[in-house]
């Protein structure tokens, strides 16, 4: 199936980061990896954790906690890498994202994706496709293309608080 078709699928992968739950459309996900040895690249920003060998190619790995402005935490047995295929401009690029734990894949029609209320100056609506409600939990569905194309730390935490308030 083609990438374009996949992104319109109504399947989402949820993962946790700190106390929060995030979702991404499975069309963007290539695979999920255990954390191998990661080679750090000197003089790179801390949220760029380093590179790994993904079947013969060098895959950059982003520490999503740091990228989202959350506090650093040592890797646990649950920590894993979600490999995304993202579009930056015309280019298809693979990038790995370190997350605390992968949770589940769930189905949800696009219509249930609620627009995020725009509130607070720091709210970065451009990185979030919407909110989904799973049981009693709020899941923030991310626009991975935009998030990883952006070269700086995104301070999502404050926005989260604002959203839930």
């Amino acid at each position: 199936m083609k990438q374009e078709e996949l992104t319109t699928l109504n399947s989402y992968l949820s993962f946790s980061l700190d106390q929060e739950c995030f979702g991404v459309n499975v069309g963007k996900v290539i695979e999920i990896l255990e954390v191998p040895h990661i080679t750090r690249i000197p003089k790179a920003p801390p949220f760029m954790r380093g590179v790994i060998n993904l079947r013969g190619t060098v895959l950059p790995v982003v520490d999503t906690r740091l990228k989202f402005g959350l506090a650093p935490k040592a890797d646990t047995i649950n920590t894993c890498i979600i490999v995304f295929s993202i579009c930056i401009g015309e280019e298809q690029v693979m990038v790995g994202a370190l997350v605390d734990a992968v949770q589940e894949v769930f189905e949800m029609p696009e219509s249930e994706l609620r627009p995020t209320p725009s509130m607070g100056g720091r709210y970065k609506a451009e990185f979030i496709r919407g909110m989904a409600r799973r049981d009693d939990e709020f899941i923030m569905v991310l626009d991975v293309d935009r998030i990883f194309a952006h070269e700086e730390i995104l301070d999502l935490q404050l926005d989260l608080e604002a959203l839930k308030a």
């Binding site: 080679t39 690249i41 590179v51 060098v58 982003v62 280019e91 690029v93």
Partner: peptide, 27 residues
């Protein structure tokens, strides 16, 4: 030699990565 890709353009003192026998990456 393998390119490090667009996330590491700033680190131009590295020409790339190389995959070692143990599966990790040398720079």
């Amino acid at each position: 030699l393998k390119p490090l890709g667009r996330f590491y353009l700033e680190q131009d003192f590295l020409s790339g990565g190389s995959l070692k026998g143990d599966g990790t990456v040398a720079l």
